[in-house]
Nucleic acid binder design. Structure first.
Lengths: 153, 153
DNA sequence: CGTTATAGGTTGAGAGTTCAACTACTTGTC
DNA sequence: GACAAGTAGTTGAACTCTCAACCTATAACG
């Protein structure tokens, strides 16, 4: 019906495959992390990014960028992580508006405990389903989409 | 840190690009549909699938499959759509447990009004950012992931 | 047949996200 | 310097999603 008129059948096939696969993956990862670590995937990403940063801390806005998150979402998320003692907020030295989110030792321990299961799930649902050249293609496709969004707004 | 040990750098690059691009796309589509039609992307998919079905109606479980949705999610979503008069529930003739979700004329009108903007957004954020051969690759990648999930559970 | 298992679907509570409004600080400009 | 405009971040309400519990109807099996 309607959409067939505006997406070619090749485009529609790609689009629907993308939607279905994406929902599958996110649902699977969310379920796995929720069960094993008690956090959704987005929260895992926050902990992971912090762990990779110098001093295990990042400005809120930088963390939002890295996790493709809105300020609001990140603010709520960090509040929940702070309640559990996995992240701590600190004032920023150079900008009095700023806040640093800092990973605590407890937060790092949670991340370390959750990581193997998470990586295994990514492997199982994504990497292992694809040929090596498809991994490369996927990287290029994802990067093209991100670049397109940055350009076109 | 941790994940670098278990995903190769190529894999990690693909994974991160996929996560970032996926969040971007879904956020953009949700925002567009929410503004122009007042519904999230998942609800649009429900209306679209119903409109493409014979009699503009589907069993709840079939609709859940087609939209990669859980029974619970679909049940809540159809309840909201029903409140607005865009979908109607009917008993299934052949299975007394069953429910049919049927698109109303009002629901069809909403879909028809929302479709052009939605398709334009899909084009802008996905199709136009990719080369034709990447569209084909994306279809194959998505289908491989869906097939993998069906096989491996 | 009667019993148990399974499939179809709904519900309510708890958790996460979004949007708009808001505070507070910084930057640009005249 | 003062004032407008922009940046950083938070908050609360409305909405969606998840999970587990639940009910009903069909299927399987002895």
């Amino acid at each position: 019906m309607a959409r067939a008129q505006w997406l070619t059948s090749d485009e529609q096939r790609a689009w629907r495959a993308w939607v279905a696969s994406t929902i599958l993956i996110f649902d699977a990862l969310d379920r796995q992390l929720q069960q094993e670590a008690g956090i959704p995937h987005g929260y895992y990403e926050i902990l992971a990014r912090l762990s990779e940063s110098g001093g295990r801390a990042l400005r809120m806005s930088e963390l939002a960028k890295q996790t493709s998150s809105s300020r609001s979402r990140l603010s709520h998320a960090v509040a929940r992580l702070e309640e559990r003692g996995w992240v701590r907020r600190r004032n920023c030295d150079t900008d009095r508006r700023g806040q640093l989110a800092e990973l605590t030792d407890a937060g790092f321990a949670v991340l370390a405990a959750a990581a193997p299961g998470h990586v295994a799930a990514v492997r199982k649902h994504v990497i292992d389903a694809l040929e090596p050249q498809q991994i490369r293609q996927l990287a290029e496709i994802g990067e093209a989409i991100v670049a397109g969004a940055a350009t076109a707004g």
